[in-house]
């Protein structure tokens, strides 16, 4: 190291090569056993556990110099977690980054699946806080391992049944358990159940990394992913009455945004790229100033962004 080059040099994508090999082997076994949680030797990362260290380690291990990386946090490209992880990889791996779902080869996500359908060849990396779907029903890891081994998932159905007994419907709205290839019950990470159907037979490869809990799991493309339910209480996703106030989108996942201290609020797309794309295509929601004519419309579009 020279005197002018005071910063220590990191390996490409921060992790050392032995760590990457270990994670890569775990990823390959995870792909071979869809839905099964492969233990791995999670490393300390330069961010706290809970900030996406599992997803970051998976991304660092698959990332190459030709990849284009997109990072979203609750669907948004411009929130703290997304911005800092994107900046992290731009710095330690010098990769191209994007906010466009269609341009990305790797999308690291915290708790959403993009609205734009993913394509074959894309990789979706989930940041997972608690990978074990049975953890809040059975705290002992030794026991949950046996339960997965024996395919003993009665407890999970009891939990969903108790929802119905108490609320009249299955009240689980996120981290809604799924069954993969009719074998493993899997936690889809805390994505809203709205996104569960997008996991089923997706052409993209889906990788899940839990850094604090030291687990990696995967869904290869075109894998059966079925949300657990009952015949008389079939699985259903959230429905929104409102349209997106910015881009007028329907049938997308909406965030409620409080706009003042007098009860004002609006619903906007949680997926910022989807919303921006629609607005550049000319879709306008009721939350934008309702003016006609090209000049004023473009001005208000800028103001909205």
């Amino acid at each position: 190291m020279t005197g002018t080059d005071a910063l220590p040099a990191y390996n490409f994508a921060y992790l050392d090569e032995q760590t990457k090999r270990m994670i890569r082997r775990a990823i390959l076994k995870a792909i071979a056993i869809p839905g099964y949680q492969v233990p791995f030797a999670s490393r300390e990362m330069p961010m706290p556990y809970g900030w996406g260290t599992g997803g970051v380690q998976v991304t660092a291990s698959v990332l190459g110099p030709d990849d284009v990386l997109k990072v979203i946090d609750q669907g948004a490209d411009d929130t703290t977690n997304a911005v800092s992880i994107r900046a992290f990889f731009a710095k330690v791996a010098d990769v191209a980054t994007t906010t466009k779902t269609t341009e990305a080869t790797i999308i690291q996500t915290r708790h959403r699946i993009p609205e734009t359908p993913l394509e074959a060849g894309q990789i979706l990396v989930y940041q997972v806080p608690i990978p074990e779907p049975l953890r809040f029903l059975e705290p002992r890891e030794t026991e949950t391992r046996v339960m997965h081994g024996l395919e003993e998932y009665g407890l999970m159905h009891v939990k969903l049944y108790e929802d119905i007994a108490q609320h009249g419907h299955i009240a689980t709205t996120y981290a809604y358990p799924v069954k993969v290839e009719d074998r493993y019950v899997m936690d889809p990470s805390p994505v809203p159940k709205f996104d569960n159907p997008k996991m089923h037979c997706s052409p993209a490869l889906q990788l899940f990394g839990a850094g604090r809990e030291k687990r990696i799991y995967a869904l290869p493309p075109f894998t059966d992913v079925v949300s657990l339910d009952f015949e008389d209480h079939p699985f259903a996703i959230q429905r929104f009455e409102a349209h997106c106030a910015l881009c007028d989108a329907r049938n997308v996942y909406l965030d409620e945004v409080v706009t003042d201290d007098r009860g004002g609020r609006m619903f906007v797309c949680s997926d910022t790229d989807h919303c921006e794309t629609r607005r550049t295509e000319g879709h306008r929601g009721t939350g934008l100033p309702q003016t006609e004519g090209g000049e004023t419309a473009s001005t208000s579009r800028e103001a909205a962004e």
Partner: peptide, 19 residues
Amino acid sequence: DPVFGSQTVFRAVMDAMAN
């Protein structure tokens, strides 16, 4: 180039395992 060579091979193997 061990860093990029092994990454290239791994991605190809991952592609093979996923497809």
